[in-house]
Amino acid sequence: MTRLSGKVALVTGAGRGIGRAVALRLAEDGATVAVNFRSSAADAEHLVTELEERGGQAVAIRADVTDLAETKRLVEQAVETYGRLDILVSNAGIEHFAPLGEITPEDFDRVFAVNTKGQLFAAQQAARHLRPGGRIVLTSSVSATRSVFHHTLYAASKAAVNSMVVNLAAELGQRGITINAIAPGGTATDMAATNAVHYRHPLLDVPLPEWEKMHCALGRLARPEEIAAVTAFLVSDDACYITGRTIEADGGFF
């Protein structure tokens, strides 16, 4: 497919999981991809090699999106490398589960620094370089609008993302740029392998696979490439009249 031919995309948190799948899909659709990572250098370099072996162009750029100076450098390096920026997919994020009485100020700062602050300033810095037709996709979660036991801090950090895209849409729309968010449900990544059990209410004594069938219309976790497919739609011309929206890709979570 070539619907993103000539476009340059920056994907944050692209070394693993959903971010990796997004980078692969955007490259498959013709985009040149800047692969951001913070600590998973080997994964990011392996992804770049894979993209190049498939005939694409890619570069790995280390940056911590919780640091504005590093985010600014990340975006500028992508632009300097390829001469332009057309797409930002802000995917970097961290999980958190804890009851109210155990949430600390340090937890709050750490979770919001990545999931909220990091995404806001990634959008800010990317928007400085985007032209009319530019696309920004942030990453929310179905937890932002669902009640999940002990998930308050994480859910709040993602609910803020939903509000950001609603409010930034009008501002960026004046420049012909769209901004949306994608809210995945449970997705088969290493993060899910670690945290999926926490989504089950502690009083519900049901094996995790059965719980997934009970709470998802499709009865299974998403594959990362399925989330990537929705992201690829949002950054394409097919989604040119969609902005300020959070798209839930959750398999019918209830």
Rank of each mutant, 00 (worst) to 15 (best):
R3I: 14
V11L: 08
G13Y: 08
G17R: 01
G19K: 01
G19W: 02
A23E: 04
L24W: 04
L26V: 03
A27F: 01
D29V: 13
D29P: 12
G30M: 03
A31Y: 06
V35I: 08
R38Y: 02
T49M: 10
L51I: 15
E53H: 15
Q57I: 10
I61T: 04
V65I: 15
L68A: 15
A69G: 15
E70M: 12
Q77G: 14
A78C: 15
T81F: 03
Y82C: 05
L85Q: 05
D86T: 11
I87N: 06
L88F: 00
V89I: 13
V89S: 09
E95M: 15
H96F: 10
F97T: 05
P99K: 00
I103V: 13
T104S: 14
P105C: 09
E106P: 09
F108Q: 09
D109P: 07
F112C: 04
A113M: 04
T116V: 06
G118V: 15
L120K: 00
L120A: 14
F121K: 05
A123V: 12
Q124N: 09
R128G: 13
G133Y: 07
V137E: 14
T139V: 07
S141F: 10
V142F: 01
S143M: 08
A144I: 01
R146L: 09
R146S: 06
V148G: 08
H151C: 08
A156G: 15
S157D: 04
K158S: 03
A159N: 06
A160P: 05
V161L: 06
V166Q: 10
V166S: 10
L168S: 11
L168W: 12
A169L: 09
E171G: 12
Q174Y: 09
R175W: 00
G176W: 01
I179N: 13
G186W: 00
T187Q: 06
T187K: 02
A188M: 10
T189R: 03
T189P: 05
N195M: 14
Y199G: 01
L204D: 13
P207E: 05
P207L: 05
A217V: 11
G219I: 05
E226C: 09
E226L: 09
A228G: 12
A229D: 13
V230Q: 06
V230N: 02
A232P: 04
F233D: 02
D238Y: 07
Y241N: 12
Y241F: 14
T243G: 10
T246H: 10
D250S: 08
G251Q: 01
G252F: 10
